[in-house]
Amino acid sequence: MDVFMKGLSKAKEGVVAAAEKTKQGVAEAAGKTKEGVLYVGSKTKEGVVHGVATVAEKTKEQVTNVGGAVVTGVTAVAQKTVEGAGSIAAATGFVKKDQLGKNEEGAPQEGILEDMPVDPDNEAYEMPSEEGYQDYEPEA
C-alpha cells in the first residue's frame, strides 16, 4: 500500500510541476504579447503594419512553449490582441483601416495563427491545408 501511495504522490508532483510550467509559459506569452502591443503603439504610420505582424510573430513563438489545451486559448487571445492593436492603430490615425491585415508588401496577414497546427491532446499534428499553395516548377 505504501508503494501505491508513494507512486500516487510522485504522479501528483509531476502534474503540479507540469501545471506550473504551463502557467509560466502562458505568463511569458502574455508578456511578449504586451511587449508587441507597446511596440505597435510606438510606431509611426509606416511601421504600424509591420508592428502588428511582430506582435503576432512574438506571440506565436511563445505559444510553442505552452502545451496542451492552453495553446488553443493563448492563440485565440493573441489573435484578438493583434486585431485590437490594429483597431487602436486605425482609431489613433497611425494607419488607414484599409491597410490593416496586410503586410508591407500588401499581402493579407489573416491566418497567421489560424494555420498553425495545434492539437490540445498532444496526440497528432496535421499540416495546414494546401489550398493556398501553388506547385513550383523550376525553369529549365
Results as ranks from 00 to 15, higher is better:
2 D>Y: 12
4 F>K: 02
5 M>W: 14
5 M>A: 10
5 M>P: 00
6 K>F: 03
9 S>G: 11
11 A>Q: 01
11 A>I: 08
11 A>R: 01
16 V>A: 03
17 A>L: 04
19 A>R: 10
21 K>V: 05
22 T>K: 01
23 K>W: 11
24 Q>N: 07
25 G>P: 11
25 G>I: 09
25 G>W: 12
28 E>D: 08
29 A>W: 07
33 T>K: 02
33 T>I: 02
34 K>M: 10
35 E>M: 12
36 G>N: 09
37 V>T: 02
38 L>S: 02
38 L>Q: 09
39 Y>Q: 10
39 Y>T: 07
40 V>S: 04
41 G>D: 01
41 G>E: 05
43 K>V: 11
43 K>Y: 12
45 K>W: 11
45 K>Y: 09
46 E>P: 04
47 G>N: 13
49 V>W: 11
49 V>F: 05
50 H>A: 08
52 V>M: 03
53 A>Y: 11
54 T>I: 13
54 T>H: 01
54 T>R: 10
54 T>C: 01
57 E>K: 14
57 E>A: 08
58 K>T: 09
59 T>Y: 14
59 T>K: 01
59 T>M: 05
63 V>A: 13
64 T>L: 13
65 N>C: 05
65 N>I: 09
65 N>Y: 14
66 V>F: 06
67 G>L: 06
68 G>E: 06
69 A>D: 02
72 T>W: 14
73 G>F: 02
74 V>A: 14
74 V>T: 00
75 T>L: 06
77 V>S: 01
78 A>V: 08
78 A>P: 02
80 K>C: 04
81 T>F: 06
81 T>K: 01
83 E>R: 15
84 G>M: 09
84 G>C: 11
84 G>N: 12
84 G>V: 14
84 G>D: 10
84 G>P: 02
87 S>F: 13
87 S>T: 07
88 I>T: 01
88 I>H: 04
89 A>I: 09
89 A>Y: 15
89 A>K: 09
93 G>A: 14
94 F>E: 05
96 K>M: 09
102 K>S: 00
103 N>K: 03
105 E>S: 09
106 G>I: 06
106 G>Y: 10
106 G>F: 09
106 G>K: 13
107 A>F: 04
108 P>R: 09
108 P>T: 11
108 P>F: 03
109 Q>W: 02
111 G>N: 01
114 E>P: 04
114 E>V: 14
115 D>V: 13
115 D>C: 04
115 D>W: 05
117 P>G: 09
117 P>D: 05
117 P>F: 14
118 V>K: 11
118 V>Y: 03
118 V>F: 12
118 V>Q: 03
118 V>C: 03
119 D>S: 03
120 P>G: 05
120 P>S: 10
122 N>R: 12
122 N>T: 07
122 N>Q: 05
123 E>T: 04
123 E>P: 00
123 E>I: 13
124 A>S: 06
124 A>V: 13
124 A>I: 02
125 Y>A: 09
125 Y>N: 10
125 Y>I: 09
127 M>C: 10
129 S>I: 08
129 S>P: 13
130 E>Y: 07
130 E>D: 15
132 G>S: 12
133 Y>F: 04
133 Y>G: 04
134 Q>W: 14
134 Q>H: 03
135 D>N: 12
136 Y>N: 13
138 P>G: 12
138 P>Q: 08
139 E>M: 12
140 A>E: 06
140 A>K: 13
140 A>Q: 12
